[in-house]
């Protein structure tokens, strides 16, 4: 397996009753968002009630994994010592295609920081972290990445 995008010291996700299904789908490389079964509005991060219609019924909507960069930052300071040899890295908010306006925080990989721009078209790439854990990162559409 190739080297991981981030060092092993990085914090890993923790889940509660509302968010566990997202991470279970992620482990299968399926990018999902929660959709209200009452009014159809999507939301992310997942929550127990639809803020629009207050329905507690919801479904998981599988998305194609493409989208566009809504905003981003090129991080040039190591907020963990272990990150010092991974600088700079790019964090972004991706507006997901067919997601009903939902955006997701992630990383842009396989892309020079100078190329990152708002509205850049991207697609998901999965990094397996363990047997039941994978993280969705994004890369410019049409890019082939060796890592992750």
């Amino acid at each position: 397996m190739s080297e991981r995008f981030f060092p092993d010291e990085m914090p890993m996700p923790a889940a509660n009753a509302e968010t566990l299904a997202f991470w279970e789908a992620a482990a299968r490389h399926s990018l999902v968002v929660q959709r209200c079964a009452g009014c159809g509005q999507t939301r992310h991060p997942p929550g127990p009630v639809c803020p629009a219609c207050r329905s507690t019924a919801s479904q998981w909507l599988e998305l194609p994994g493409t989208g566009s960069v809504y905003t981003f930052s090129v991080v040039r300071q190591a907020f963990l010592p272990a990150l010092s040899d991974r600088l700079p890295y790019v964090v972004c908010a991706v507006e997901l295609d067919q997601g009903g306006g939902v955006r997701m925080v992630s990383n842009l990989v396989g892309c020079e920081p100078e190329r990152v721009a708002i509205d850049l078209a991207v697609t998901v790439v999965w990094e397996d972290m363990g047997p039941d854990l994978a993280l969705p990162r994004f890369t410019p559409l049409g890019t082939t990445v060796a890592r992750p």
Partner: peptide
Amino acid sequence: PVPRIRSAKSLLAAHVAFTMPFGVFGPPI
């Protein structure tokens, strides 16, 4: 340890699970 999905100890912990593993450490970023 082999990373496994853990149980979030607070509502905020479940929410920052969608930002911190991606290197969004705190308010500046």
